[in-house]
Amino acid sequence: MAQVSDKPKFVTREEVKMPPLKELTSMRDKIAPGHRLCTGCVAGTILRQMFMAAEAADYTLIIANATGCVEVCTSIYPYTSWKVPWIHNAFENAAATITGVEAAYKALKKKGMLPSDKKVKFVALAGDGGTYDIGFQSLSGAFERNHDFIYVCYDNEAYMNTGIQRSSATPRHASTTTQPAGKVIPGKPQPKKWMPEIAVAHGIPYVAQLAPSNFNDFFKKFTKALNTEGPSYLNIFCTCPRGWRAKEEEGILISKLAVETNYWPLFEVENGSWKINYKPKERKSVVEFLKKQGRFKHMFKSGNEHLIEELQQDVDKRWERLLKLEQL
């Protein structure tokens, strides 16, 4: 395990040098084409963005992937999409698994048995179900033990792999297969669990929220996580056209709207200090974000105006809290 150091030194955003896009896009993909992710699935985009940042910083990612869309779509035996070391153990234990790998790295390094002395970073990769819900205990334990790893949650706000069931990351009033919008109950009654603040409560050095529509910010945050000693938690917005009943070509647009409406604020927390990285000049109504997605369709029926209001309140409340946290 990593020694608990006082305060890890962060690279500043200014210090992160992003190579020209042309150079980034000409890098050899670490995720091979031919995987079975749905058309328009943004998880694939997120993976490529991660690998670009890792490659630019000369890191090889060693990944433990929780059960979920990415896992099943990229590893159908006898094929694999992964050009980096990758392990799938089960649904609820990506964090425990990757910390075992990290412990093995330290042990074998001591014994002089490492096959390579190149820079590596350990990554646990999971969806919101594998993070907010079933993987929560394993994740919390791994943070507390202060292992040197990045936890990446691609948050598409429901159990998409098993068929769009609600998770604790599903927003209020969204329609899912286990909480469908009906005549009596209009979708999920509870608001979305706010995972980033729970991660921060562990006292880990770096927590950030990212969106694939804001690649520059994404690149900087992933690079910072790479350079952080100890645990980092990255909460990444991930459009799911199938589960959200959105247009396949609008994944990045929806991500952009999530940011512009403050539905998905971009912020980072270094050693407990909060910083909002993007404050929209003119915050758009959450309606702009909702109307692109079939999961919120019932909220636009006449008589359901209060549903939209309630979700707008959830968004505003969170933003206000963020502003307060930033002042701390």
Binding site: G100, A103, A104, M113, Q137, S138
Partner: peptide
């Protein structure tokens, strides 16, 4: 490397990761 994990489930999960790492 002695890992004092938060459950038996994680104990064996970590052992799986470690063993897969060699």
């Amino acid at each position: 490397e002695f890992m004092t994990v938060e459950s038996e489930h994680s104990a064996l999960s970590a052992a799986v990761g470690a063993a897969a790492a060699g």
